[in-house]
């Protein structure tokens, strides 16, 4: 039985040049510069939202792309973090950095609980368990008083960062989101390229072998799960402060599907793929807002096309063509 999720990218056979060995660094610089100049050309609010989703997708990709675990319930961490950030900022008057930390911690705790249950089963069951647990927590969110039911938590104050910097100014908020996104992105890059990350990849390729080499794979999987949920929480918390809203949309199953789609389009198991994927999907949603329900059909078609025609995703196909690692 084939165990691999992300198809391995062929080792470069061509002579290594600066362009090839440093391709990830170069692309990272391009991305940073792009994100710094972008708000002068397009809506900062859209870019901030896209960066939150990009971080969310990167967090999700840490699991599917590098451990081979498909979580179909990542909306759970994103959505509940968004609720707790919004609530702590609005009802308890937390400053934005504390509110986002509250959301991040929510993601971590929920990740630990859900993860320790889900890793007890493998493969397809893992996906179904994560989906079912997320749906359970969706119903809790629907019934709990503090979430505001169908209305959600609206008009969340952005507040002052550290009590000093006014985040209701769009540019201040933008810089904060950019810093959070880049920090999260680099953190994930660091995880993937650490010895810990190598073990994760070994589990993805052949779990039985990793076990026989003496690794307690369940612990590695759980840590990876918690890390992923924590970062998803950071993304959700930031999103709640940026959009000043936490709602049922963030915890419901279509959100879990959306993050899968973003990552799949960009490229499972590539570092930049989820970022590109989330920007593409969000642009698509904005452009297609007028056609209403057809968005669902288009998303479905993209899913089918990605699975059948280009499983490596855009960045993965590109990296494969150019024989580089992205």
């Amino acid at each position: 039985m084939e165990q691999r999720v992300a198809e391995p990218i062929a080792t470069p056979e061509v002579q290594p040049t600066v362009w090839r060995t440093q391709s990830a660094t170069i692309l990272f610089v391009v991305m940073v510069v792009g994100l710094i100049v972008a708000p002068f050309f397009t809506y900062p609010l859209f870019l901030m939202q896209a960066m939150c989703f990009a971080l969310f997708a990167c967090a999700f990709n840490l699991l599917i792309g590098y451990v081979g675990l498909l979580s179909f319930g990542h909306a759970l961490y994103f959505g509940w973090a968004s609720y707790l950030s919004a609530y702590s900022a609005k009802a308890w008057g937390f400053t934005p950095e504390l509110a986002i930390l509250t959301g991040t911690a929510t993601g971590a705790v929920l990740g630990l609980l859900a993860g320790s249950l889900a890793i007890r089963r493998q493969g397809i069951y893992f996906a179904m368990i994560t989906l079912a647990l997320a749906q359970m927590m969706f119903f809790f969110a629907l019934q709990a008083k503090f979430t505001g039911g169908e209305d959600g938590i609206q008009a969340v104050p952005r507040g002052h960062l550290f009590g000093l910097i006014d985040l209701s100014k769009e540019m201040n908020m933008y810089i904060v989101v950019l810093v959070i996104f880049l920090a999260g992105f680099l953190f994930i890059y660091r995880i993937i390229h650490s010895p810990f990350g190598e073990v994760l990849k070994a589990i993805r390729e052949n779990e039985t072998r990793a076990i026989s080499l003496g690794y307690k794979t369940d612990r590695y999987k759980l840590v990876a799960f918690v890390l992923s949920a924590t970062l998803a929480g950071a993304a959700g918390g930031t999103k709640a402060i940026v959009l000043q809203l936490a709602s049922l949309t963030d915890v419901n199953w279509p959100m879990s599907g959306e993050v899968v789609l973003m990552t799949l389009v960009g490229g499972l198991g590539t570092i930049f793929g989820p970022v590109l994927g989330s920007f593409i999907i969000l642009v698509m949603q904005y452009k297609l807002a007028a056609v209403g329900e057809w968005v669902l059909v288009i998303q479905g078609v993209i899913f089918v096309a990605c699975v059948l025609l280009f499983r490596r995703g855009i960045v993965g196909e590109l990296a494969n063509k150019l024989k580089i690692r992205l």
Binding site: V5, I64, L264, L296, Q299, V301
Partner: peptide, 20 residues
């Protein structure tokens, strides 16, 4: 011949199409 997960993703896409 592929990992189980691709079947799940493809049929999820089909579900979205049908529901849409």
């Amino acid at each position: 011949k592929l990992d189980h997960l691709y079947g799940l993703l493809l049929t999820f896409g089909l579900a979205l199409i049908i529901e849409g």
